[in-house]
């Protein structure tokens, strides 16, 4: 797997890539980066050209010039495809990355061949909340002289009880993104995908894991997306692409390889 930068009008986009064939664009979740796909890419790259970028303000891409919303991020992804000379790609998105993929599919339908929404979510009315964010999960964290902001980032990373190396990887994402990191979470929170889902024209897979806090929303997202498929992985964790990369890749490959999804 190689790492590189693409120059787009908004700045430099960092990305990981491997393989040849039909391009598959892998979009990460909030306050993380293409690093979350590093164990998924080797499975996909046997038959596809896998490309995982970092959104502006996350990972090693340039900062966003201002607090981007979902459509701003989606536009940078179209610019990335332009810069790489890719006309059309399959787009896979995890959490907020799925919202960005959805926006690409609806606003630039000619650029998206297939769509995979991994644990998509939507804002819920207070009374029907099945999932509450851990306390202060998305609040702004300022740098403190005593370093206490680091323990806050460690706390947010350790909440999910992942293996230690993954907790450490997640903490690095917070440090890289810095105090502005949460902007992408806020952009995701402000975006309701439900009005957009009926407009999706390409083959779509809605996919979740039972331990992901957004799992209960997958059914609704599936019903709103015409002709979509739904797959729920029993006992699958949050951050499934980091924790269960093989299972994640198999679900994606089965969908991409399925001639039935070529409509």
């Amino acid at each position: 797997m190689k790492r590189a930068y693409a120059d787009i009008p908004e700045g430099q986009i960092f990305y990981r890539f491997e393989g040849n064939g039909e391009p598959v664009l892998l979009l990460h979740a909030g306050v993380t980066s293409s690093d979350e796909y590093k164990k998924v890419i080797p499975f996909l790259s046997k038959t596809y050209r896998a490309i995982a970028p970092d959104f502006l303000g996350n990972g090693d891409s340039d900062p966003a010039p201002f607090a981007y919303d979902i459509i701003d991020h989606a536009r940078t992804m179209v610019h990335l495809l332009d810069s790489l000379g890719i006309k059309k790609a399959a787009v896979v998105g995890q959490h907020v990355g799925g919202k960005i993929g959805l926006e690409m599919a609806v606003t630039w339908p000619e650029r998206v061949s297939k769509l995979v929404l991994s644990s998509p979510n939507y804002p819920e009315a207070e009374e029907e909340k099945s999932f509450k964010d851990p306390p202060n999960f998305m609040g702004r964290v300022e740098l403190q002289k005593d370093g206490s902001h680091l323990m806050e980032w460690w706390r947010r990373s350790a909440l999910w009880r992942h293996p230690l190396d993954i907790t450490n990887d997640r903490t690095l994402e917070y440090v890289k993104a810095g105090p502005r990191g949460e902007e992408i979470h806020w952009a995701g929170g402000a975006y309701d995908p439900r009005p957009k889902l009926p407009l999706v024209k390409c083959p779509t897979l809605v996919f979740s894991a039972t331990h992901d806090p957004f799992c209960s929303m997958a059914e609704t997202v599936h019903k709103l997306t015409p002709g979509s498929k739904l797959i729920i992985l029993e006992n699958g964790p949050i951050d499934i692409d980091r924790l269960w990369p093989k299972e994640f890749a198999e679900v994606v490959l089965n969908f991409l390889n399925d001639p039935g999804s070529e409509k």
């Binding site: 370093g147 323990m151 460690w154």
Partner: peptide, 24 residues
């Protein structure tokens, strides 16, 4: 070494802050 309680992060912070540099 990476520790489950995150204390390694504070050790890295200590080493980074021991020169009295500005916060950034």
């Amino acid at each position: 070494e990476i520790k489950a309680d995150g204390s390694h992060v504070m050790e890295w912070w200590r080493r980074s802050s021991c020169w009295g540099h500005p916060l950034d």
